[in-house]
Design a protein around this nucleic acid. Structure first.
Lengths: 240, 240
DNA sequence: CGCTACTTTGATAGGACTCAAGGGCTGTGG
DNA sequence: CCACAGCCCTTGAGTCCTATCAAAGTAGCG
């Protein structure tokens, strides 16, 4: 846990509004201090399901997965998160995190005391509106994902997953053609509601058809148009 | 649209905090007025996907479904909602609702101007915290549902669906053994990521085994214990 | 009473899982 | 430096669950 930098301003601009505004007015407040540049290694937990929610986290660089463990011992991965994303919203309800966040590759993270965030909400209507919008967006995202799972074949899910990844890792670029799969096949499978074998088979099939090239964790999208087609439902009728 | 009553206090107590506090301080504010006791009939829309989000809604009595239409014309039902529940959170991000809400049975609904809600947030930290908790809970709920869909068989999904309904419709009672299925088999199927035929088959099977009795829209849970068992994953190994 | 929409039931087919075996990379230790 | 274990990934064969297709039954409604 080092707390040195001030590249924060840069980082927070990317993660927009939420952190930026806190930061712009200094660093130390009632309710705790912002902890900058915490370094995590693959396998580390940022927080665990059931822990008291004391912070929200912003990923500066890196990649993590969030997952929920059920009573019958089966975990469900509910998302992968990359730079600029905010973690910990799920702890705002009952004061306890309802998911765990596990680091996938070396990552740098900043922690914002929860009380600080809430204090800022009370002070700044803009900030408050912003936080609410973020939460609302999260809900919308879950709904989108639900549709993905509920109405698509394995092939479509994998295609959509790759497209989503390429956009989110692309950052400023429109799309990122080269992707490093920081998560295992088993993680992808778990996330998409499939088994690892199916992921493997579908990636192989995509490669065979010339849609992608994949070797271990490196993946390159060769034919974006085809990948897009694989991600769509094959309707036999025209749609309004 | 009638605006007569004052049984509101009662209703809002049930839906807790959110509306109650607004109401307790009178009825008219900057930003618009609360509209009480709007009456809807089956098939009516409370709001439509894409509409500007001007209100949050509280269901006083009745039942509704919320759904999202995708570009390829296929709708996905994302939830069923009953008395005391709040609708419209998904409109808080982009100012437009991203789902539609359709009424399933005669319902009475109250509408709260969005600006009013936001104003109240700014004034009352408690209220704000409450709204954020509600949103956070919504996210958690989506995660739970995702697990249901992602990791369970059709039989388990239906069993879990019935258990959920019995609890939510039960209100103060621990469980409600008699359930009126206000939604069609097709709606249930859509929600659970299945086809209507499968729902029908599974309900028949449950009836055959003496778990439930079902005739059209009336459903009675005969053997709660068995239904619970059907809802669990059948592990072949013991779990920690 | 007949129309329509919804539901039920049956037969069939296909997609994804399960089980099983083999291959490749990584790290450790001799 | 090489051998080996462990983990992850890949590939194949077979099975099961659920969707699909088809048809008949039922209820609601004008």
């Amino acid at each position: 846990m080092s707390s040195k930098g001030d590249s924060c301003t840069e980082c927070f601009k990317k993660s927009q509004c939420l952190a930026e505004k806190i930061l712009l007015s200094g660093k130390s407040y009632l309710g705790g201090e912002i902890i900058n540049n915490i370094i995590y290694r693959p396998g580390d937990y940022i927080y665990r399901q059931g822990e008291v929610c004391k912070h929200l986290f912003v990923i500066k660089t890196g990649a993590v997965k969030s997952q929920i463990g059920s009573i019958d011992g089966i975990d469900q991965i509910i998302g992968f998160h990359f730079s600029t994303e905010v973690l910990g919203f799920d702890g705002l309800d009952c004061n306890k995190y309802v998911s765990s966040v596990i680091v996938l590759e070396n990552s740098i993270v900043c922690a914002f005391p929860r009380q600080l965030v809430e204090m800022f909400c009370a002070v700044s209507p803009d900030f408050q509106r912003d936080l609410i919008a973020r939460l609302s967006r999260e809900i919308t995202h879950e709904h989108q994902f639900l549709m993905l799972i509920n109405k698509n074949t394995a092939e479509q899910r994998v295609a959509l997953f790759l497209l989503d990844l390429s956009i989110r890792l692309g950052g400023r670029e429109v799309v990122k053609i080269d992707i490093i799969l920081c998560m295992s096949r088993a993680d992808i499978a778990n996330y998409l509601g499939l088994v690892p074998e199916t992921i493997s088979r579908i990636l192989s099939r995509f490669e065979l058809k010339g849609v992608i090239a994949v070797r271990k964790k490196k993946l390159k999208i060769i034919n974006m148009k085809m990948l897009n087609e694989y991600s769509h439902r094959h309707c036999c009728y025209e749609i309004a």
